[in-house]
C-alpha cells in the first residue's frame, strides 16, 4: 500500500495530476447538469404562462 502511495518517488506528480484531472471532470459535469435543471425550470415556467 505504501509502495502505491509513494509511486517510486513521483507521488506528488502522479497523484496531483490524477487529482486535478478527475476533480475538473466532475466539476464540469456537475455544472452542466445543474445548468440543464435550471433552464428546464425556467422553460417550464414560461410554457405554463403561455398555456
Amino acid at each position: 500500500m505504501n509502495e502505491l502511495l509513494d509511486m517510486g518517488g513521483y507521488a506528488i506528480f502522479v497523484w496531483s495530476s490524477y487529482g486535478i484531472f478527475f476533480f475538473s471532470l466532475i466539476i464540469f459535469f456537475l455544472i452542466n447538469i445543474l445548468n440543464l435543471r435550471k433552464y428546464e425550470k425556467i422553460f417550464n415556467k414560461t410554457k405554463n404562462k403561455i398555456d
Binding site: F29, L36, I50
Partner: peptide, 24 residues
C-alpha cells in the same frame, strides 16, 4: 464515454437555452 455523455447533456441544454432565448 465522458465526451459523449457530457456532449449529449449539453445538447439538451443548448436546445432548451435557444427556446428560452426565443420566448423571452
Amino acid at each position: 464515454l465522458f465526451l459523449v455523455t457530457v456532449s449529449l447533456i449539453r445538447f439538451r441544454l443548448v436546445l432548451i437555452e435557444n427556446k428560452v432565448l426565443r420566448t423571452s
